[in-house]
Design a protein around this nucleic acid. Structure first.
Lengths: 241, 241
DNA sequence: GCCTAGGTCCCGTCG
DNA sequence: CGACGGGGCCTAGGC
């Protein structure tokens, strides 16, 4: 189930990685240098680091801090293992966009491997989709008398989360954010409102931003543009999901 | 330098993790269940998984596929280790925003640990900043006769990468993207141009999007708005960085 | 395959 | 400390 080699020879480590790279997760502690080139470029000098590969092609070089790897290639990349003198070489190619990672391991302290699966039905609760779902089920979360006309209404300038109508017959553009709304969210809403206004001359059009909160500068933009903000809390939503 | 325990008792594993959690990277292979709650929520049933902790508070639960952990807490989080019967429990708290990760390890196959550093002077070449630097050094990359007036010019609607002037005395708003420009980039540029026009009535104002490429829909928006596109290649830039 | 938009985004920088 | 915007973003969903 779990295999590992301590201070293996380059040859043994190469064989080990070759055997498991397409079926298991592999973890390597080693003295490592690495380069990346593709859309951008980066380089790492020799140092102890942690390397992880996964059967889907993921390759990551981790350091002692940060959540993200310093150098990596994403799923779909292809991994090649070879030997250059006393150095174990991992080369990874991502094809679209073309990106290359080369890792030279001068000393392998440990290489280990285990078969690990995937939670197929993994689900995160509390995403933007959940909030939109709740509004669809109970439109009054936006405001009293609000009626939904369309979800994911497609326009030339992007897709509107919810397009609806208020009790006075005005069109209402609703933009939903799962957390704190930023200025960018307000600009987005403004764009949609201007588009809908252009398409419906003479008709009243309102824009409502629905989020758990809003930054002060975003709120200033919002007010400048004549848009509205509606706060929701997790408690508002939870009953309708 | 590298320590590890194979199939340790819960007690030994606990002690091991407690000793190293604030100074080293720790890797655990185990039979794991986990929950996350905070801005959102998620849950994982018992399964073999890979767990990594780092001294800066990073905690990650990895599965056999994907680059990103399924459940995690970022740097700055605090890790607590305890025992619940035969189960090793890791609890992690992130304080702002408040988020909790609880990991229950029913079986530890291996726990290992090594001190790993950080590349302090790590640098990625080819970021947006590099492109802007190159234009600052050689404004004609934008167009012949272009003069820079200001970098990161702050406005009410965001900060303009480069504000300049063309040879005819028109104001020129330059928006730089490191890769393929999306519609979002065009909207951003349009916003800035409108703002600058509003502040400089009667003066000619142009908007130029500088990127390695542009999607077809983004190009359509760009033309509709009367904006311009200037392609750059890595080769254009590299001489000026 | 590319395009589009969300993310528990993370991450650095600047106030 | 929060706020803002970039990222080799990654990842899921449409076309």
């Amino acid at each position: 189930m779990l295999d590992h080699l301590l201070n293996p020879t380059v040859k043994d480590a190469t064989q080990f990685i070759g055997r498991y790279k397409s079926s298991r997760v592999i973890v390597i502690y080693g003295q490592v240098e690495a380069t990346y080139s593709g859309r951008a470029a980066a380089q790492l000098r020799l140092m102890p680091r942690l390397i992880i590969t996964k059967p889907d092609g993921v390759l990551m070089v981790h350091e002692g801090y940060r959540e993200k790897p310093v150098i990596w290639n994403p799923p779909g990349s292809q991994l090649f293992v070879s030997v250059d003198g006393d150095v174990l070489v991992l080369r990874s190619i991502r094809y679209s966009p073309r990106e290359y990672v080369t890792i030279r391991i001068h000393k392998v302290y440990m290489v280990s491997s285990m078969e690990i699966g995937l939670t197929e039905d993994f689900k995160v609760i509390g995403t933007e989709k959940d909030v939109v779902d709740a509004i669809m089920a109970n439109p009054s979360l936006v405001e009293d008398g609000f009626k939904v006309l369309s979800r994911e209404y497609e326009t030339m300038v992007g897709s509107i989360d919810i397009l609806g109508e208020d009790k006075l017959g005005n069109l209402v553009v609703v933009e939903v954010k799962r957390g704190e709304a930023s200025p960018e969210a307000v600009h987005q809403l403004k764009r949609y409102v201007e588009y809908i206004k252009g398409k419906n001359p003479g008709r009243g059009v309102r824009g409502i931003l629905v989020a758990t909160g809003i930054s002060t500068s975003a709120y200033r933009y919002l007010k400048d543009y004549g848009l509205e903000f509606r706060r929701y809390t997790h408690a508002n939503i939870i009953n309708y999901t």
